[in-house]
Amino acid sequence: MEEERIVIAGFGGQGIMFLGKLLCHAGMLDGRHITYLPSYGVEVRGGTACCNVIISSEEIASPVITSPTTAIIMNTPSMIRYEPEIVKRGLLIVNSSIVDRHPKRKDIGVVMLPATTIADRMGNTRVANMVALGGFLSKSQIVKTETVLAAVGEVLPPYRQHLAELNRRAILEGKAAADAQGPDAIWSKITRGFGLG
């Protein structure tokens, strides 16, 4: 079985939910089983945004993630919360422009990606989420990058279509930046398929 259980977390306004929905949409287009579960209600009000995305080759049990295979972390509180939960040999993508600390875990693969800095350089700080997504695509084969790029246009609402190209470029920039962080990291050596643990 191939399965990614991805927690995406950061501040409200960082495009966390969009990132999650885009991944799901691509997973669906690639013929995977997918579920997406946003945090809702009270939790949303604390200024944090979080969603759970599962993409799998098989039918998905609960959409609630307790042991993520990947965490995409866009702010410090989320790093503190989710780093310990990642499975052994899992993947941690960190927006290092905003997160002010290094991960402690040695048994996971880490990509420190200055996503906001890269996005700013591209002229729009709001595509930092897409840069981070690129980082994930560099290390996981659960969805094809081409599919994600194609899905961008489908997931953006009509009034945001003019941003599609920028979003795609940001994904590719993020991917390139993560690719450059070397093929020797442990996460690229293992097949990223996980049991149900």
Binding site: C24, I34, T35, L37, Y40, P63
Partner: peptide, 8 residues
Amino acid sequence: VLGQMVEP
């Protein structure tokens, strides 16, 4: 959970 979760 079912109310909030997204699936195709």
